[in-house]
C-alpha cells in the first residue's frame, strides 16, 4: 500500500480526509461488516475514482463520507472539520436520478431548491441556476419537468443541481450506471469539463474500470470483504482526454490492465477467506 507515500499530484491541503473508516451493520441475526478499515485523502481540486468489485461497500463508504450514515469507527473530515452530518460544501449525485429529482418541481425548481435553503438572494440564485444549466447544456429546458426529459438529461439536471450548490467536494455514486453507452461517454466528458471549469474536488464511485481510468487523476481500488484500499493508481494520462484517442492510447491500456489485475486479486483474496 502506497497511499501515504504517493506524491501529491497537485499542491494543496487535504480537502477530504477519510481515516480508519469502519462500518458495521447490526441486525438481529448478527452483524455484517460493510467497510473494514479505509484510509485515503484527496487534495483540493483532485478528481479521484473509486473502483471495486460489486458488493465491496462503495455505496456505504460514500454515504459515510456524505454524512448520511454514521460510521461505526474512524473519522471523515472535510477541510479539517469532522463530518457528523451532511457538510455545507459538499454535493452528492446519486445513481437513481429519477428518484433523486423531485417530479413536482420543474428543472429550474429542482436546481434552485438547495439554494433557497441556503438563503441566497433571488438574483444570486437565478445567476447560479442559469450558469449551472448552461454548463450541462440544458439552458433551454429550465421550465420542463424532469420526467419530460430523457434519462441522460435527467442526470444532467442532477449534476446541474450539484454544480449550482457550489460545492468544494462533489461525490458521485455510480452516476452513469443506468444510461446508455453513448450518453455515458458524453456525460463522462461533461464531468471532466465541469471539474476543470469549477475547480471542485471530485470523488467518483464506479464499478467500471474503463470509466475510472478515463476520468480520474487517481484510481483507488477497493478490495471486498474486508474493504480496504488495495491500490492507489496515479493516472498519468494527458489532461486533455478524448473518448477515441485516450481510450486507444498504449498507456490507457496499461493502466486499465493494472487496475483490472488489482480487482482480480481483490476478488481472489476475498474468495479465499
Amino acid at each position: 500500500m502506497n497511499r501515504d507515500t504517493r506524491p501529491h499530484s497537485q499542491e494543496g491541503p487535504d480537502v477530504l480526509d477519510v481515516n480508519g473508516l469502519r462500518k458495521t451493520y447490526g441486525s438481529a441475526g448478527g452483524s455484517v461488516e460493510a467497510v473494514h478499515d479505509l484510509t485515503f485523502r484527496l487534495d483540493a481540486g483532485e478528481l479521484a475514482c473509486l473502483v471495486g468489485p460489486s458488493g465491496c461497500g462503495k455505496t456505504t463508504l460514500l454515504k459515510c463520507v456524505a454524512g448520511l450514515l454514521a460510521p461505526t469507527g474512524g473519522t471523515v473530515a472535510v477541510d479539517g472539520r469532522p463530518v457528523h452530518e451532511p457538510p455545507p460544501d459538499m454535493a452528492v449525485v446519486f445513481q437513481e436520478y429519477g428518484r433523486s429529482l423531485f417530479p413536482w418541481l420543474t428543472v429550474r425548481g429542482n436546481v434552485e431548491l438547495p439554494l433557497k435553503e441556503k438563503r441566497l438572494p433571488r438574483a444570486r440564485r437565478t445567476a447560479l441556476v442559469e450558469e449551472a444549466l448552461e454548463a450541462v447544456g440544458l439552458a433551454g429546458s429550465a421550465r420542463s419537468h424532469p420526467w419530460e426529459l430523457s434519462g441522460g438529461m435527467q442526470q444532467r439536471v442532477a449534476i446541474a443541481r450539484a454544480i449550482a450548490y457550489e460545492p468544494r467536494v462533489l461525490l458521485m455514486d455510480e452516476p452513469f450506471a443506468a444510461v446508455d453507452a453513448q450518453t455515458r461517454a458524453d456525460l463522462e466528458d461533461l464531468v471532466r469539463g465541469l471539474w476543470q471549469r469549477f475547480e471542485m474536488t471530485v470523488l467518483f464511485v464506479t464499478h467500471d474500470i474503463d470509466e475510472a481510468v478515463y476520468l480520474g487523476q487517481r484510481v483507488l481500488v477497493l478490495s471486498s470483504a474486508p474493504t480496504v484500499v488495495q491500490d492507489d493508481v496515479e493516472i498519468d494520462l494527458p489532461e486533455q482526454r478524448d473518448q477515441l484517442t485516450t481510450r486507444s492510447a498504449q498507456r490507457f491500456t496499461e493502466l486499465r490492465a493494472r487496475v483490472h489485475g488489482q480487482i482480480q486479486q481483490a476478488k481472489q483474496a476475498s474468495a479465499r477467506e
Binding site: P88, A91, F94
Partner: peptide
C-alpha cells in the same frame, strides 16, 4: 417518501420543515 429523495434532501441540508 422515496429513500433516495430523502437522502438527496438531507445531503443538501434541507431542514425538517423544508
Amino acid at each position: 417518501v422515496d429513500p433516495v429523495a430523502e437522502e438527496t434532501a438531507r445531503s443538501y441540508r434541507l431542514g425538517r420543515l423544508a
